[in-house]
């Protein structure tokens, strides 16, 4: 499992797409928002938590179809399926690798982009914490979506349609935590729910993803 994780990370770093594109997309969405809603600082402060979360979610979505597609095309996916590592483990590692290459950089970049949107000072800690807790769930749910659509040509658009509704609870609790943090309220309920969603998806979704992979490899 560790070896597979290393291999995926090495591939992502060498290709350069994982880190760069997702972050650039995140930046561009956040820059576009003030053009759309106007430059008033107060308004931006109020909508910043939601915008940052939605932008991070879309940036994570962008790189999902690469999780299995490359391995499927060059034929290493059937090889992984016959390896001694169970397919559930493969799905789990793929989810973790996706998080390390997109979720983690997004989390670290979010506070910087918070300045652009005039985020309330009290919210930075909660932004960091909620993204750190929530983005793993986004990666794992996305891995499941990628496993469902791996065999399809032009599966990317369909995958967005399948995955985005599944992102709703994570988004609600994540943005809620930051909003409460910004207002000086106690965000712990949202953070606990967020952690629950993440742990639950890591516990259950590898099984669903590996089932979908087996069907697609049949």
């Amino acid at each position: 499992m560790i070896a597979l994780l290393r291999r995926d990370l090495a591939l992502a770093v060498r290709a350069g797409g994982g880190f760069g594109l997702g972050l650039a997309f995140f930046l561009i969405v956040v820059v576009l928002v003030p053009f759309g809603v106007g430059p008033e600082a107060e308004l931006l402060t109020r909508i910043a938590p939601g915008i940052l979360w939605v932008a991070a979610l879309l940036a994570a979505l962008l790189s999902l179809d690469r999780i299995f597609a490359l391995d499927f095309e060059d034929g290493s996916l059937p090889l992984l399926a016959t390896s001694p590592l169970p397919l559930e483990g493969v799905a789990l590692v793929k989810g973790i690798a996706h998080w390390v290459t997109t979720g983690l950089p997004l989390t670290l970049a979010a506070p910087v982009l918070g300045f652009l949107l005039n985020l309330a000072p009290s919210a930075y800690l909660w932004l960091l914490l909620s993204l750190a807790l929530g983005t793993p769930a986004l990666s794992m749910i996305g891995t499941f979506g990628a496993a469902l659509t791996v065999g399809l040509r032009r599966g990317g658009l369909l995958m967005s349609l399948l995955v985005l509704p599944l992102y709703i609870p994570t988004l609600i609790f994540g943005a809620e935590a930051v909003r409460r943090g910004a207002d000086g309220l106690d965000p712990s309920t949202s953070l606990l729910m967020l952690a629950g969603i993440t742990l639950g998806s890591f516990a259950l979704l590898p099984f669903a993803a590996s089932l979908a992979l087996r069907v697609n490899l049949r």
């Binding site: 709703i168 609600i172 069907v215 697609n216």
Partner: peptide, 28 residues
Amino acid sequence: DTAADLTSVLCIVGSVFAVLSRYAVNFW
């Protein structure tokens, strides 16, 4: 058969997340 399998898995996972969304939305 592939379609039936994959949509079934989606339906089950979707149900869990639909219930989750219901509670999340209540909270929201």
